[in-house]
Design a protein around this nucleic acid. Structure first.
Lengths: 243, 243
DNA sequence: ATGCGCTAACATGTTAGCATGTTACAGCCG
DNA sequence: CGGCTGTAACATGCTAACATGTTAGCGCAT
């Protein structure tokens, strides 16, 4: 099956393979296409407002339109794309209303979760959290902001998993997706990142004290920080927002 | 296009048209099939654990498999059906864990919402709520439990809409779906329904007083009532629950 | 009689092609 | 020169047929 002159891979200048890593993922084709597209949208490789050409995606991934349509339908249910029947599919633009709603929903879930966790957390779970925070501090010392945000997300995921409920993290992530997508437009401010670490330490302290009220206050003030940093985006990047 | 002897509609004995009302709904075929199937599952017309035969559904609705597959994929994302690749699709059985998780999620959302609403509710919104409660009382007086539950759901929907966030109700409904599906197995206890109305009145009173703490307590105790009534179901209907 | 293996039916995942409606551009008229 | 209209390209929704893996039942050997 040698193809000495593959037509598609011969023009590295014109075609932009974008960010569509080959599918070495698990699950059905539809699932893999969904994960690939979702990552591309959340990482802003596909820009808000941009049109999604299904035939183009089909050719780029080497699959037919059904799994792509399936994936797009799921993304539409999450609000990450807008499908206009018989017209086109577009990457959802940002909307301050959706960002605020996602933040509200995540706060509601995490506040309820941490009130529960503060009463039930075990010593082993506290050890896991402390370990996570140590790594956070190390990454911050190295100015590795990408790594820090990754550990940040893992910490929230850990807190939600400690409730024993398995789907909480998925709902929270879906809500937070819009916020996180917009966050990438904000350059990391070192002082702010350090403050974030301090807020994480406050959350841990409240959990160590098994104090639900303190934990609620800590995580609430932590979550409300970010949205204020996103407000100016609507003015600085008006083309990426809904009219 | 007359068909004097339609083959499919001629055997009212053997075939069970189940609850698949003809699609006089809006939207694309996939959307309408989704709504039809969702209603059938939530109303227990399709019993938990039962197999869903896509070809059967296609024949019954007169559509092809794509819109049905689309609808089933969405139901799977909601956890209402379990798709086993290349094997079969089954209506999700009840699971106490999912019921408790759904109740937890709804409580988290509604508590956060009502704390906000208690501070921002307008007089017009209070009028709408009072009107809803008057109808609830009338339906209770007539022992119209189905109507009462409908108004109950509308009241919660109203409260969430008063936050100004548009998708809260949808998330809450998705979480609550499992609980509501199981609730239909519990016969309505007149005394319990009257107590529910009293709880609704307590919620309204807290909102009239614009007291967030009282509103939170009221809606919390209200939501926690139902789950306790569902606990015995796992013993009385073991065949409808996950192993 | 029972346990194992094979085979045939079946259900889903995927693919290619058709139908329908929208959008954009080019040409024409005022 | 500007606005309108008609046509052509295009994107999605849907349908029908193919490929792949599973399940269940039957038959055979032990």
């Amino acid at each position: 099956m040698l193809q000495p002159h593959d037509t598609a891979s011969q023009d590295p200048i014109l075609t932009e393979p974008r960010l569509t890593p080959l599918d070495r993922l698990a699950g059905s084709l539809g699932q893999r296409v969904y994960l690939t597209l979702r990552h591309a949208i959340l990482s802003l490789a596909y820009r808000p407002g941009e049109i999604l050409r299904k035939p183009e995606i089909c050719a780029e991934l080497g699959v037919s339109r059904s799994p792509v349509s399936d994936a797009v339908a799921r993304l539409a249910a999450e609000g990450l794309v807008d499908v206009i029947p018989q017209a086109g599919t577009y990457v959802a633009r940002f909307s301050m209303e959706e960002i605020r709603e996602g933040a509200f929903l995540r706060e509601a879930i995490e506040v309820a979760a941490i009130e529960l966790v503060a009463r039930t957390i075990t010593d082993e779970q506290l050890v896991i959290l402390r370990r996570n925070l140590v790594v956070q501090a190390a990454l911050l010392a190295d100015n590795d902001f990408a790594g820090f945000y990754k550990l940040d997300g893992e910490m929230h995921e850990l807190l939600l998993s400690f409730t024993g409920y398995r789907k909480l993290a998925a709902v929270s992530d879906t809500a937070w997706a819009h916020v996180n997508r917009a966050r990438q437009l904000v350059l990391p401010v070192p002082g702010r990142v350090a403050a974030t670490l301090a807020e994480h330490r406050a959350i841990l302290s409240a959990l160590e004290a098994r104090d639900p009220d303190a934990a609620r206050s800590a995580i609430r003030s932590h979550l409300r920080q970010l949205v204020t940093y996103l407000e100016p985006l609507e003015r600085s990047h008006p083309d990426l927002f809904n009219p």
